[in-house]
């Protein structure tokens, strides 16, 4: 067994970071820290559509459905698609982490490829806290309709002493060449027409409403004359479904400013990192101010939304 005990603030930082609350940690440790400079405003959103995003995954050979609630804020030229619940969830976690940091004395980091330590803890009735389980969607998709670029911003790896970065990928994605059909459906009381398109290895069926004259859609999808209210892949693995629509007033669209950016070169780079993030989970055990962290294989297996570039 290879375990070592480290008791330094640096390591505490390092691991708490994986919970995705860099801001909280910094604020907790370093109260006089200035608020980070804000990124410039890209546009002002006037419309918000809320989607549920379902994806099928497998957990120990059982099919499970993972659901996120996503928001699409739409402005004249820009739009941003992000996890609508994440902010709320993160603020709850922030409070928890602040409490934790005050009581923390030391941290043990254990690699546990064979599940030995995990089983030993289980036998001792110790219940772990799952640290970096997938709690919502980290990636944000910015679309600039005026020059047909899509910018993906996702949490990237940690660099050095507790500093995280964002991976940023700029992709030129021209509006998709949708095939419109005469079929109609009603979503939230909006009449919708059907359109289909292949995109990055999957065939999409979307429903767009002539009543919302804006060329937008969830995730990277767009290119129809009207807003897409529902889209799903032909295989049924992924589905976006609008559940709410709200006219909002001048909500700024801007890139996040709490981490530095690293420009990703290819989509593969972003997706590979995303996959590796989901492969393992960290479990933490608290005992008298000592935190023990185990890294374990994630029992949930995800499908890739994009199969090709």
């Amino acid at each position: 067994m290879r375990n070592k005990t480290v008791a330094s603030g640096c390591i505490i930082f390092f691991f708490l970071l994986t919970t995705g609350n860099l801001n909280a940690m910094q604020a907790a440790k370093n109260n006089q820290l200035d608020p980070p400079p804000q990124q410039e405003e890209l546009d002002k959103a006037f419309l918000r559509i809320i989607y549920v995003f379902d994806q099928q995954a497998t957990k120990e050979d059982e099919k499970i459905l993972i659901t996120d609630t996503m928001a699409l804020d739409i402005a004249q030229n820009w739009s941003v698609y992000y996890d609508w619940n994440k902010e709320r969830r993160d603020s709850v976690a922030k409070v928890k982490d602040q409490k934790l940091i005050q009581t923390l004395k030391s941290v043990n980091v254990l690699k546990d490829p064979e599940n030995e330590i995990f089983e030993r803890f289980e036998a001792m009735h110790r219940k772990p806290e799952i640290m970096n389980d997938r709690k919502g969607e980290d990636a944000r998709i910015f679309k600039n309709r005026s020059d047909n670029t899509t910018i993906t911003i996702d949490k990237g790896p940690l660099t050095g002493a507790g500093k995280g970065i964002y991976l940023r990928l700029k992709e030129p994605i021209p509006p998709m060449d949708w095939q419109i059909s005469e079929d109609t459906i009603s979503i939230m009381g909006y009449l919708c027409y059907k359109a289909t398109v292949p995109f990055r290895g999957r065939n999409y069926t979307a429903w767009f409403s002539p009543e919302i004259p804006i060329n937008e859609g969830p995730w990277k999808l767009y290119g129809l004359p009207r807003a897409i209210l529902s889209a799903k892949t032909e295989d049924g693995l992924f589905r976006f479904q609008a559940i709410g629509i709200e006219q909002i007033k001048d909500v700024p669209i801007r890139f996040p400013s709490d981490r530095d950016f690293e420009e990703a070169k290819t989509l593969k780079q972003v997706n590979d990192y995303r996959r590796s993030k989901l492969k393992d989970i960290s479990l933490s055990y608290m005992d008298n101010g000592t935190m023990t962290i185990l890294r374990k294989r994630n029992p949930v297996k995800y499908n890739d939304l994009e199969l090709s570039e």
Partner: peptide
Amino acid sequence: KTMELKEVVV
């Protein structure tokens, strides 16, 4: 003219 949409609040 700003369009008025039927809002569906979530």
